[in-house]
């Protein structure tokens, strides 16, 4: 039993948050101009061409909101998580795709996941009436779970194919970390279409919650 990744989409079809745990297929960062917003996840934002100095300055110019301070400190925590997760790959900067067969770039992957989820949701509604909700699907290697909030946020989790339904877990992420660190965070710009909702506390809080679950090895 294990959990692979978590995607959050807002009602404008944008991916606003991403986090992963045990995926073995290395994540390839999004390409420049691929439509991925800033502050989705440090691991997937297009790699800036210059060194750490230039990195800092582009970040400063990109993030005009006061969330800037949060984001720049996010890096530390994310790096720490990475360290815990992939003991072998601590020195690999997340921006460098390497190792076992990198898949799609993140922006394309995020769009595919959203496309599948939206199509299945519409299909299920068409088949069984407007009240019916799409819950999950399963393949030979993973299971995808969907939880949709009334405000149109879609929480998508990829887990082990044999995992139990994750609806309650996703609801808990929504009711706990999401409300606490995104909705109640005056510095977080929800529904902005220009920024994701990533921040240090949100990420750490989800991480802590999921690691405490029995499904997490």
């Amino acid at each position: 039993m294990t959990i692979f990744s978590l995607y959050i989409y807002d009602r404008h079809c944008n991916c606003v948050y991403y986090q992963d745990w045990h995926r073995t297929k290395r994540l390839k960062p999004a390409v420049e101009g691929g439509g991925i917003l800033p502050a989705v996840s440090r691991a997937v934002t297009p790699a800036p061409s210059t060194g750490p100095d230039g990195n800092g300055s582009t970040a400063a110019s990109n993030y005009s909101s006061p969330r800037n301070t949060l984001s720049s400190s996010t890096g530390v925590v994310v790096a720490m998580n990475e360290m815990n997760l992939q003991p072998g790959a601590t020195t690999t900067p997340p921006a460098q795709p390497s190792m076992n067969q990198p898949g799609l770039p993140f922006d394309e992957e995020a769009k595919l996941v959203y496309g599948v989820v939206l199509s299945l949701r519409n299909m299920v509604k068409k088949l069984a009436g407007r009240e019916e909700q799409f819950v999950n699907y399963k393949t030979s290697t993973y299971k995808l779970h969907l939880f949709e909030t009334i405000s149109g946020y879609k929480l998508v989790m990829l887990s082990d194919p044999d995992a139990n339904p994750m609806q309650s877990v996703l609801r808990q992420i929504y009711a706990g970390p999401f409300i606490e660190y995104v909705v109640r965070n005056p510095l977080s710009t929800m529904d902005s279409r220009t920024h994701g909702i990533d921040n240090e506390y949100f990420r750490a809080s989800i991480d802590r919650y999921l690691r405490g679950l029995p499904v997490f090895p």
């Binding site: 045990h22 297929k25 599948v116 088949l127 799409f134 999950n136 699907y137 399963k138």
Partner: peptide, 22 residues
Amino acid sequence: ITSRISPIGPSSGAQVIEGENF
């Protein structure tokens, strides 16, 4: 598409798709 977005290597396509009631 479902076989393309696997987080761990090659995967089959969707085998079971569940809604709330079917």
